[in-house]
Simulated scan of single mutants.
Amino acid sequence: MLLDTPICDFGWKAPEFTLLDAHGQSHTMSHYLGERGLLIAFICNHCPFVKTVADRLAEDTKSLQQAGVKVLAVMSNDYHDVAEDSPDKMVEFADTHGFEFPYLVDETQEVGKAYNAVCTPDFFGFNARGELQYRGRLDDAKMRDATNRTPELLNAMLQIAETGLGPAEQVASMGCSIKWS
């Protein structure tokens, strides 16, 4: 089912969580909340929208990390029903696309629910105080050629890193619904 993310609820505080990555290493959200902000991306392996943007996401997040913005990705789908989203497949997907950020398994789906994540991809950009400042799309290319794209997420997160505030105008992300148990 195709869904759009809700409008950004500016100032909404990021709920704390601790999740394991597909290698079994523990990651706590607040440890990644740095002075330049934090991007949390709800993604999965099987969604055609995520597959289309995965290489661009890897490229843009490398730029963000070089600018001091921290990045986490969370997979909240019920992978027992969607085998392509299993932890082993997450490792393959991350390696294939060159992800340089932790890709976390939301086994209980509690994190996805706490964040009100609705689709993959669903991007949450927080400032240094853990206040939501961006909930938009990756870029304006959608499912088309990305040669002349505007990297909206990258630009927004760099603005948040500098000013603590996200852009007033944001375009919702679009993707597949999260597969709840």
Rank of each mutant, 00 (worst) to 15 (best):
T147F: 07
G164F: 03
V118W: 03
C176Q: 03
D78K: 14
E162M: 07
M1L: 11
E100Y: 08
D106M: 06
K113T: 06
Y134R: 13
F124R: 01
L165K: 14
A41D: 10
S76L: 10
E110F: 05
V69H: 10
E84L: 12
F17V: 05
G24Q: 11
L154R: 15
V74N: 02
M29P: 00
H46D: 08
F49R: 06
V105F: 05
D85L: 04
D4V: 03
M1G: 11
H23F: 15
R56V: 11
T96W: 06
L20W: 02
R36H: 14
R149D: 00
T163D: 07
P15L: 08
Q109E: 12
V69C: 10
V82R: 13
D122R: 05
T61W: 08
C8S: 06
A94Q: 04
Q133A: 13
M1E: 13
A117W: 00
Y134M: 08
V105E: 00
N116E: 07
E59Q: 15
T163L: 08
G34I: 01
L19Y: 09
P15W: 10
N45M: 10
Y32S: 04
F49K: 10
L153T: 01
A41R: 01
L57I: 14
D85F: 02
I40G: 01
V53E: 04
K70S: 14
S63K: 15
Y103S: 05
N155Q: 14
P15N: 14
I7D: 00
H97Y: 09
V74A: 09
F93Q: 01
G164R: 02
V105D: 00
P121G: 05
Y32L: 02
D81M: 13
D60H: 12
N148H: 15
D78F: 09
L38C: 09
D139P: 04
C176M: 14
D9L: 12
F124M: 03
F49N: 04
S86E: 09
M90T: 03
A73L: 10
L3H: 05
P102F: 09
T5E: 03
K70T: 01
T52Y: 13
A117Y: 04
E162K: 15
I40F: 08
V74H: 05
I160F: 04
E107F: 13
G68Q: 12
T61H: 08
D122P: 10
M143C: 10
S181E: 09
G164C: 11
L154M: 11
V69E: 09
V82Y: 07
M75E: 01
E152C: 04
P15R: 12
L33C: 00
A58G: 09
V53M: 13
T120D: 06
F123I: 09
M157E: 03
D95F: 12
P102H: 04
D78H: 14
A22M: 12
A22K: 12
S173V: 10
K70L: 06
S173L: 11
V118L: 13
A156G: 03
S76F: 07
L104S: 01
R144A: 08
Q109F: 11
E16S: 15
S63G: 10
G34Q: 13
R129A: 15
C47F: 10
G125T: 05
Y134C: 01
A58W: 11
S181H: 15
F99D: 03
A67I: 05
D106H: 07
V74S: 05
F123W: 08
P167C: 06
F126H: 00
